[in-house]
Design a protein around this nucleic acid. Structure first.
Length: 202
DNA sequence: AGTGAGATGGCCT
DNA sequence: GGCCATCTCACTA
């Protein structure tokens, strides 16, 4: 008999951002699309963005804008923005509005319906969610989900609890694509499951 | 294996 | 007018 998996509560996301980024590894991201299909994936790669004191973060120096509006919501909301004009990136907001921080979800391992065989060459068939832009495309996430709460199913986007990944299987490395951020570019705020094939870069 | 460029749009100064 | 928390394909070797 299976135990019903529980949805991570809002309190989970109000904790320290680095801790949340690591704790999210192994959890199961779920999206109920408007057509009813449920897409799921096990989170295997994340990055922490540490708010007003982090030059790589969109809320560096407490700069508010139309784009980063959702980062000033309470912990447990989604923050989705457009990058390079054609890709979406999904973040989960952490802490509280006084500390606008977030965790970028960079890669998931498809499970359930999402693991259906893809109409792609074999080499690429199972690599459709190994990167922040590809993850959103795969789950069907767009600006429509920007700002929605993720601690219950009503928003269509939520995260199921799952056993934590042992710390010995987690690597911490510099974040990707933030070379402009000075010394912050070297901060080891990217976390991933060592050896998992869906991690965007080893 | 590694480098480079193009696609493409919203928001920034 | 320029900049991206990206991805893909086309090159070189």
């Amino acid at each position: 008999m299976l135990i019903a998996p529980s949805i991570l509560p809002q309190a989970f996301y109000r904790e320290d951002t680095k801790s949340v980024a690591q704790a999210l590894l192994g959890k199961v991201l779920c999206h109920r699309k408007s057509d009813g299909r449920l897409l799921m994936g096990r989170i295997v790669e994340t990055e922490a963005y540490l708010g007003v004191d982090d030059p790589a973060c969109h809320t560096f120096k407490d700069k508010k804008s139309a784009k980063n509006r959702s980062m000033y919501l309470d912990g447990g909301h989604a923050y989705i923005y457009v990058i390079y004009g054609m890709h979406y990136c999904l973040n989960l907001v952490t802490r509280t509005p006084a500390h606008p921080e977030a965790v970028l979800l960079r890669a998931i391992e498809p499970i359930g319906d999402a693991a259906l065989p893809a109409k792609r060459p074999a080499a690429k068939a199972n690599l459709e969610s190994n990167g922040p832009g590809k993850l959103c495309r795969y789950l069907g996430l767009t600006k429509e989900q920007d700002g929605v709460p993720v601690w219950n199913e009503s928003s269509g986007l939520w995260v199921l609890d799952a056993p934590p990944v042992p710390t010995a299987e987690v690597a911490a490395r510099p974040r990707i694509g933030v070379d402009y951020a000075g010394e912050a570019a070297a901060w080891p705020l990217r976390y991933y499951v060592i050896g998992n094939r869906y991690v965007s870069k080893q």
